[in-house]
Design a protein around this nucleic acid. Structure first.
Length: 499
RNA sequence: GGUCGGUUGGCCGAGUGGCUAGGCAGAGGUCUGCAAAACCUCGUACAGCGGUUCGACUCCGCUACCGACCUCCA
C-alpha cells in the first residue's frame, strides 16, 4: 500500500502514517451540534474529512469512519453561569421537544451533506444514545482519582491530571504553569470547581432543564467533551488511528477529550490528530454566533450581500479543494467565480478525455512519459498530507494535454494505449472517487424536450452555415446567448452549454 | 494581555535554499466566415529591515499588519 504522510497536530509535524492494524483505519471526526442550521464553515470541515476518508479508501484501506451527532450536553456561553444546554435552550425558546429540535437540524445537516456529496460515515452515533457509556466513563475517571463530585455534578480534576501525566495542554500549546497561575484571577467565580481549568463531565440538571438522566450523582446530563471519548472508545477502541475535527475544537474540546481518555485508560485516544482550518468570510472566521456566516442555501440561490450570483454545490466543493485543508480559506465572490470556471474546465477536460479513443500503435515517447509522471505526481501530492490543491494543479496540466490531444496539437500516436487508459482511470478516480465531484451537466437540462429542441436548432443552424447564411447562423447564436446558452463550434459540429 | 499561525503577481491559492505550481482575470498570437472554445507565448510575485549563505521568497532576528485560540464554535 502506498505510504502516506499526515500532519499530526499533536506533534506539530508531518509523520508517516502507520495504522494500528495493517490495512485498516479507525477514524473519528467530531460532528455538528444540531441546534441550528449548518453553515458553510461547518461544511468545509466535513468536506475536508470526506476527501481524507475517500482517499484512504482509494488506497485500499478498510476505514471505519465514525462521526458523531452532538444532541445533548453542549453548554451555552459560559459554562459556569449559563448552565443551559444549547439544545435544551432552543427547545424552550421554540416550545418544542428537544428531540424535535435535534431531528429537525439533523435532517437538515444530512441533507446538506448529501448536496455536497459528502459520504455518510460508517457509524454516526448520537450522544443521547450513549448516556450509559458516558456514566460508566465518569465513574471510571472518579475511580482513577481524576474527577470529583460536587453537589451532584462531577468535575475532571485537571491539576491532578497535569501532575500525573504532564500532558494537559499539549495539543493546544498551553502550559501547565499558566494553568496554575490562573487560579487567583478566578477567585471571583465562586463555583463548584476546585480549579478554573477543571471541566464538568456530569452536570446536575436545573429544575427547568429538559434533557436529563438518572446517574449515581444526580439527575443530570453529560458534559460536552465526554461523548466523544465514550463513543470513540466504544466503536474504535481505546486506541485508534485518526481523530479529526475543526481547528477551533482543539481547545478545550479535544484537549479535554484527551484528558478523559487518560482518566479512563491511562493513554491518549489516538495516534494522529488532524485539524481542518477555518473558512473565512471577509477575512474573519465564519461563525454563527458572530453573525459572520453564509448558509449553503444563500450560496445556491445567490441571495446574500456577499454574492453577485448563485453558485452550485459542486463549484463550492471544488472551491474548497483548491486550498489545503490546513490553510484558512477566504471566501469571496471573485474567488468563487474563478472556481466556477476552473471547475467547468476540469469537468470538460474529463468529458473530452473519456471520449478520446486510441488509434492503436502508440509509442512511448516524451509525451507518454510526461503524462505518466503527472499522474504519479498527483497521487504523490495526495499522499503528502492530502495536498488537494497540488494534485489539482497536476490534473489541470493534464487537462491541457487532453485538449491538445483532441485539438490535434498533440498526437495520440505519441501515447500508448495503456497510458491513455491509465489517464482515463486516473481522472475517474480523482474526480469522482477521491475529490467526490459530481457532473453538473451544463449541456443538458435533464429535460428531454429541451435537449431535443436544442438539437433541432443546432441542426438548422448548421444547415445555414453550410449555405454560408451567416445572418441566420449568427442570429441563432445571439438569441441563444441572451438565454444564457453558449454555442461552441468545432470540427465535429456544434455543442451548447448553459452559461 | 498570553499562545500559535499567516503576510506570495490584478484576484484565489500551492511550493521550494539555486530548477514552470495551478485556477481566474489581462495582453499578443494560431485556428475560425465571425465569435466562442481549444492551443501557444507573456507579465518575471513572494510585507519591510537586518543577518546566515557562493546563492533566500524559502533559514534566523527585529518591525509592521492580519487572523485563530485563550468562552460556545467545524
Amino acid at each position: 500500500m502506498k505510504e502516506i504522510q499526515i500532519y499530526n497536530s499533536y506533534s506539530g509535524k508531518k509523520e508517516i502514517f502507520k495504522p494500528i492494524h495493517e490495512g485498516r483505519v479507525g477514524m473519528y471526526v467530531c460532528g455538528p451540534t444540531v441546534y441550528s442550521d449548518v453553515h458553510l464553515g461547518n461544511c468545509r470541515t466535513f468536506v475536508g474529512f470526506d476527501i481524507i476518508y475517500r482517499y484512504l479508501q482509494h488506497l485500499g484501506y478498510k476505514v471505519r469512519y465514525v462521526r458523531n451527532i452532538t444532541d445533548v450536553g453542549h453548554l451555552e456561553g459560559d459554562a459556569d453561569t449559563g448552565r443551559e444546554d444549547k439544545i435544551s435552550k432552543k427547545a424552550r425558546l421554540e416550545q418544542l421537544e428537544p428531540m424535535e429540535i435535534v431531528q429537525q437540524y439533523m435532517n437538515g445537516f444530512h441533507e446538506m451533506m448529501k448536496i455536497f456529496n459528502v459520504l455518510p460515515p460508517n457509524i454516526e452515533p448520537r450522544a443521547t444514545g450513549h448516556i450509559i457509556e458516558q456514566i460508566e466513563m465518569v465513574q471510571a475517571i472518579i475511580d482513577n482519582g481524576l474527577a470529583y463530585e460536587q453537589n451532584g455534578s462531577v468535575y475532571f480534576d485537571t491539576l491532578k491530571f497535569a501532575e500525573k501525566y504532564g500532558v494537559y495542554g499539549k495539543l493546544s500549546g498551553r502550559k501547565i504553569e499558566d494553568l496554575l497561575t490562573e487560579t487567583r484571577d478566578n477567585l471571583k467565580n465562586q463555583d463548584e470547581k476546585r480549579h478554573p481549568s477543571d471541566f464538568a463531565i456530569w452536570i446536575k440538571a436545573a429544575p427547568e432543564h429538559l434533557m436529563r438522566w438518572q446517574a449515581p450523582w444526580s439527575v443530570g446530563f453529560p458534559g460536552w467533551h465526554l461523548e466523544c471519548s465514550a463513543m470513540s472508545t466504544k466503536y474504535l477502541g481505546e486506541k485508534f488511528d485518526i481523530h479529526g475535527g475543526g481547528g477551533d475544537l482543539k481547545f478545550p474540546h479535544h484537549e479535554n477529550e484527551i484528558a478523559q481518555n487518560y482518566g479512563v485508560c491511562g493513554h491518549a485516544p489516538c495516534n494522529y490528530w488532524m485539524h481542518g482550518n477555518m473558512l473565512l468570510l471577509e477575512g474573519k472566521k465564519m461563525s454563527k454566533s458572530d453573525g459572520n456566516s453564509i448558509m449553503p442555501g444563500e450560496l445556491f440561490t445567490g441571495q446574500s450581500k456577499h454574492l453577485t450570483k448563485a453558485y452550485s454545490p459542486m463549484v463550492v466543493r471544488f472551491f474548497m479543494l483548491q486550498t489545503h485543508y490546513r490553510s484558512t480559506l477566504d471566501m469571496t465572490d471573485d474567488a468563487l467565480q474563478a472556481a466556477e470556471k476552473g471547475y467547468r474546465r476540469l469537468m470538460e477536460g474529463q468529458k473530452v478525455l473519456q471520449e478520446l479513443s486510441h488509434p492503436g500503435n502508440g509509442k512511448a515517447g516524451d509525451l507518454d512519459k510526461e503524462i505518466n509522471s503527472l499522474i504519479d505526481l498527483a497521487f504523490n501530492d495526495m499522499s503528502d498530507d492530502f495536498n488537494t490543491p497540488k494534485a489539482l494543479a497536476s490534473l489541470f496540466e493534464l487537462v491541457t494535454k487532453i485538449n491538445s490531444l483532441k485539438g490535434g496539437q498533440l498526437s495520440l500516436g505519441d501515447v500508448t494505449a495503456e497510458t491513455l487508459e491509465r489517464l482515463k482511470q486516473t481522472f475517474n478516480d480523482f474526480i469522482f472517487d477521491i475529490f467526490g465531484l459530481l457532473t453538473e451537466d451544463f449541456a443538458s437540462s435533464g429535460d428531454g424536450v429541451v435537449d431535443g429542441l436544442m438539437n433541432l436548432i443546432l441542426e438548422m443552424r448548421q444547415t445555414a452555415r453550410t449555405n454560408k447564411d451567416w445572418g441566420t447562423s449568427d442570429k441563432i447564436r445571439d438569441v441563444l446567448k441572451e438565454l444564457d446558452i453558449v454555442v461552441k463550434d468545432s470540427k465535429e459540429g456544434a455543442t451548447w452549454s448553459k452559461a
